[in-house]
């Protein structure tokens, strides 16, 4: 699917959480120069679930997320070690087509970052690059993705308007639509609601719950309530280490690690 064909049979994750694993991370370490931001993290990501990554600022959760679609490649001093397998394909392999990988694993960022172009252009930008040029096809995909992102009704009559004329919450849903248009398998969210008001946040959360029917979602969040509301599984990161990973309910109700309990109870943040 992504550049390199891998015939090796994937080993099942040590901890079987019940569903099919789509991404398997083993002993992942990420360095910025000499600083190790992520330390030997292993975890399986289940298909068609929402996985939340929580932890205090600087705990490595965003770095971990950006390692998955190789966004850290854009930082010259960053390097990753260990293994990430997506559908059996080793993603850290040098031969991986990063462009195809990022199409498969879309990303939504912390601050809504639409291009300073029209709503329509925002969505077709990626499509055109990936070879879809036919107008009718583009139009269909634009409508489909906007519908999926629950934005179509609000913008269908003004696709030519600038994306910057939308509200913050609408901009973020446009960014989600832009990602959905490429028909990814996994969508990575890097604190997608931290710049939004509560009503917009609620809309995005509702949308994410709908999306998990068809996609696998991984969400970095600063907001523990958010993780508790939407995530099936939650991973707690602290100082670059994965402290605990479990079904969300378990993790919040019966944390096995002391640090997890302290963080959840608000003893540090």
């Amino acid at each position: 699917m992504i550049g390199v064909q891998e015939k090796k049979i994937i080993e099942l994750p040590q901890r079987d959480l019940g569903k099919e694993t789509i991404v398997q991370v083993d002993n992942l370490s990420v360095y910025y120069g000499d600083f190790q931001a992520v330390k030997q993290v292993s975890l399986p990501i289940e298909k068609n679930t929402i996985t939340a990554l929580i932890g205090p600022s600087g705990c490595g959760k965003s770095t971990f997320l950006r390692a998955l679609n190789r966004m850290n490649d854009t930082i010259p001093s960053a390097r990753s070690e260990g293994s990430i397998r997506y559908d059996g394909v080793p993603l850290l392999d040098a031969a991986i087509d990063v462009s195809a990988l990022r199409k498969e694993m879309g990303m939504v960022f912390q601050k809504p970052n639409p291009f300073p172009k029209s709503i329509y252009e925002n969505i077709v930008h990626g499509l055109r690059y990936h070879g879809i040029r036919k107008k009718s096809q583009l139009k269909t995909l634009v409508q489909e993705s906007l519908e999926q992102a629950a934005l179509w009704d609000e913008v269908s009559d003004r696709l030519d308007a600038s994306a910057l004329s939308l509200s913050g919450g609408q901009q973020q849903r446009l960014c989600i639509a832009r990602t959905l248009a490429l028909k990814p398998q996994v969508i990575l969210f890097d604190e997608p609601t931290s710049a939004l008001d509560p009503i917009s946040t609620a809309k995005i959360e509702k949308l994410m719950l709908e999306l998990k029917e068809h996609y696998t979602l991984i969400v970095v969040t600063h907001n523990m309530q958010q993780a508790a509301r939407i995530a099936d599984n939650t991973a707690f990161f602290y100082q670059g280490e994965l402290v605990e990973y479990n079904a969300t309910q378990e993790l919040f109700n019966q944390p096995t690690e002391k640090r997890t309990a302290e963080y959840i109870n608000g003893q540090f943040s």
Binding site: T74, N113, H125, G126, Y129, C175, R178
Partner: peptide
């Protein structure tokens, strides 16, 4: 040009030259 725009384009799997041509230079 805000780094966020470049990341948005890279995040969609769009290549560097296409990003420069269609996102960075217009901005």
């Amino acid at each position: 040009v805000p780094v966020a725009l470049k990341e948005a384009s890279f995040g969609l799997g769009v290549g560097q030259w296409y990003t420069i041509k269609n996102v960075l230079l217009p901005a």
